[in-house]
Simulated scan of single mutants.
Amino acid sequence: MFISFEGIDGSGKSTQARMLADTLRGDGHDVVLTREPGGSPGAEEIRALVLQGDPDRWSAETEILLFTAARRDHMERTIRPALDAGKVVICDRFADSTRMYQGMSRGDLRGLVDQLHDLMIGCEPDLTLLIDMDPETGLTRALGRQGAEERFETFGAGLQARMRDGFLALARDYPARVRVIDGNRDPAAVAADIRAVAARALA
């Protein structure tokens, strides 16, 4: 099974992805925990290009190409081999993030994202766990990390709010795949809901 985690910056999805991986391993599943952009050597190199530096260093179109290239390498070298071996793959972000951040942040390029995805990737997760979070709270959390990869956080709260609306719209468009989890709670409560959803999907 291929499970992705999505949400705005600071929503806690990375923490929850790790917690679910640990839980499933404890239940006897063979789990690969990975992330995007990244998850393979070539994709990690592209991650360094797109998540660091001046927020305006790339056009939205160039970013879409870079993220799609990273995802293709990730699929070929990490995700597909793991799925073929019968493992559970948990991915911190996947194509839905590109649909939101590159497809909506600087113009209406969602159609281009979907075209490239269909052409070069052709795969969606079996289950997407969308951690819904208040945009202001998420931005405060994200900026508080003070890491090197803060490029998209620097676009500010306005982008966070648009991305949240976009993710929720995506959940309405794909109800069979996307499950919305309230992230405005204690992490343990969020994790409990996620475990329940994942358990039903894996049953």
Rank of each mutant, 00 (worst) to 15 (best):
G107W: 02
R200L: 11
R145C: 09
G147N: 12
F155M: 11
L24G: 02
F152Y: 10
L119R: 15
L109D: 04
I64Y: 01
D165N: 15
L202V: 09
P135S: 06
E61W: 11
K87A: 06
A198N: 07
T98L: 06
R57F: 07
A201T: 11
R164T: 04
R57A: 14
D56S: 10
E45I: 11
G156V: 05
F155D: 09
R35V: 04
E61H: 13
T15P: 02
T98W: 04
T128W: 03
A95P: 01
S105C: 15
A188V: 14
G144A: 14
Q115M: 10
D173I: 01
H29W: 12
C123R: 09
L129H: 04
L119V: 14
A48W: 14
A43W: 02
R93A: 05
R80M: 01
F5V: 00
L127E: 05
I121M: 09
A191L: 14
V180M: 05
R25T: 12
I79G: 04
N184G: 10
R80G: 02
W58I: 07
N184H: 03
M75P: 00
D186R: 13
E76L: 14
D56K: 09
F94H: 02
L143D: 06
A60G: 13
R106F: 09
L143Q: 11
A169T: 14
L49D: 01
G26N: 08
G26D: 12
A171H: 07
M1S: 14
L49K: 04
M163L: 08
D193T: 13
R164D: 09
L119C: 03
R195T: 12
E136V: 11
Q52E: 15
G86T: 06
L168F: 03
T68F: 03
P37V: 04
F2P: 05
L170Q: 10
G147W: 02
L83F: 06
I79V: 15
E6A: 03
L33C: 10
G111C: 08
E44R: 08
A161L: 09
A188I: 11
A82G: 05
R162Q: 15
F155W: 13
G166L: 02
D126Q: 06
L49Q: 12
P55K: 01
C91I: 08
A69F: 05
D126R: 08
E153K: 00
Y174P: 03
G12F: 06
G39F: 02
A17L: 10
A188G: 09
G86F: 10
P135W: 04
